[in-house]
Simulated scan of single mutants.
Amino acid sequence: MNKYNLTRRIGSIVIGCGVAILCCCQANAAIIMPSAKDQITALKSTVLINSSEIKADCLIKSEASPELRENLAAIQLGHIPDPLGELVLAGSDIERKLGSLASRLSIPDHVTIRRAGAMLKGADIAERITSLCKGPDAEDLAVDLSRVPTNIVLPGALQNWEINTNSDNILGMRLFVLTAQTDGGPFRQLIQVRVSRIVEAAELTRLARPGETINNNMIRRKQVEVKSDQSNIPVTYAEAVGKCLGRFKSAGTVLRSSDLSTGSGNICKSSDKSDSNLRSESFVKVAKRDSWVIKPGENVDFHFNSGTLSLKIPARAVQGGSEGDEITLINLQNQRRIRGVIKEKGRVEYAQN
């Protein structure tokens, strides 16, 4: 009987100890279990953002408490100024910036943050600019695209883009405006290009004088780049042939429009008229010379008559002429010049003043 009571007492003690142990475990669990406010939230190790500013709330996951998210949104960790840019933050730097909030977070050793964006290819931009510069009748234009970026980074996904220009000039520096619409906002950038024209100009091969008519023997072809819409542009080889030169130009000079004599003041036309007049006068003189009785260089007799005195002096004609013309002769006896009137062939008489 005593043994039975002892067994029951031991069983009661064991049950009581078990209940006590269970209660202690539950109490301990209640002490260790943190509240929702004190739960540890893990931060992301890789983050993609859309703006340049980096706020701490972008590092947490969506299941974080609103209170924690609000507190983190007030903390700035840095910024990425360029789309598609990247920033790597050390865990220690993040912990320092978060302050007391860091105790509620699980922070990786490093966090990589990238900014979203899009890329516009420079080749596409260059193609559109070239098409704007070169019209259907301007295939000889050369467009320097060295100032066009290789690629342009946009603030977001590209929706549409266009290029326009307000430049009136065809040659020289031209300004273009690139505008694009993206989901990250509008984008605008200025782009400059240089436009020139390659012409087959005329280059002189020798010294040329004013009044000369340009021909193929005077010039040669030379490729020249015209860089501006200037008025005094080089003359092409085809245009130069047959034109009148208006000024002295040395060999190796590329002819320009100002070097030519054109219009009413064309000196070649005046020269042609002068040459024509000279040729006419020369023809008259030649025809008249053929009819001369005495020609220059011929030996003649110079006669001097005064009353009963008559002298005949050998002389040589300096000038020629017909009967009745007064000419100059040289007295072969004393080499002095004398004047006389032609009477007939070989005879000249003293000309009285």
Rank of each mutant, 00 (worst) to 15 (best):
W292Q: 10
V199Q: 02
A315Q: 05
S196M: 07
W292F: 15
G265A: 08
S250D: 13
S282P: 00
G242R: 05
L260H: 09
D229Y: 01
V224M: 06
K273C: 00
P314I: 05
V241M: 02
K269T: 11
N266F: 05
L278D: 13
Y237L: 08
S274W: 07
V241K: 08
L311Y: 15
N215K: 05
N277M: 09
R209Y: 13
E239Q: 15
I233L: 13
A238Q: 15
P296G: 07
G252Y: 12
R316G: 00
I294C: 04
M218K: 01
Y237K: 03
L311V: 12
T236C: 07
F304W: 09
A208E: 11
I214R: 05
A201P: 03
G246L: 03
M218S: 04
R256H: 14
P210S: 11
F304Q: 06
V241N: 07
P314D: 05
K222Y: 02
S196E: 07
G252L: 09
D275H: 11
S258K: 06
I267A: 05
E298R: 00
A251D: 09
A202T: 08
R289Q: 13
A208S: 15
H303V: 14
Y237N: 06
N216L: 09
T308D: 15
C244M: 05
A240W: 03
R209C: 01
R279Q: 14
R206H: 12
K288Y: 04
G263W: 02
G263M: 01
L245D: 06
S306M: 11
L311N: 12
C268M: 08
V235H: 06
C244Y: 03
G211D: 08
G246V: 07
D259C: 04
G242N: 10
K222S: 14
V199I: 14
S231D: 11
G246W: 05
S258D: 15
D275Q: 14
T308A: 13
K312M: 14
P234I: 10
F304R: 09
V318H: 00
K243W: 00
T308K: 14
I198L: 12
R221D: 03
S264P: 00
T262D: 03
G263T: 05
D275R: 15
L255V: 11
N232S: 10
L278W: 08
G242K: 04
D272K: 15
G297M: 08
Q230G: 15
K227W: 01
A240L: 06
L255M: 11
V254W: 06
N216E: 15
E212D: 13
G242M: 04
A240S: 13
D301L: 10
S196N: 05
A240H: 04
S306T: 07
V293H: 01
E281K: 13
D290F: 03
S196Y: 00
G246S: 04
E239T: 10
R279M: 09
S271G: 15
Q319N: 14
A240C: 08
D259M: 01
G263D: 03
K249I: 12
D290Y: 06
S270H: 09
V226W: 05
S257T: 09
I219F: 04
E281C: 01
K222M: 12
S282F: 02
S280Y: 10
A315S: 11
P234Q: 10
T213Q: 13
E225G: 00
I219H: 04
N277A: 12
V199S: 03
S231W: 01
R289F: 13
K295E: 10
T205D: 03
G211M: 07
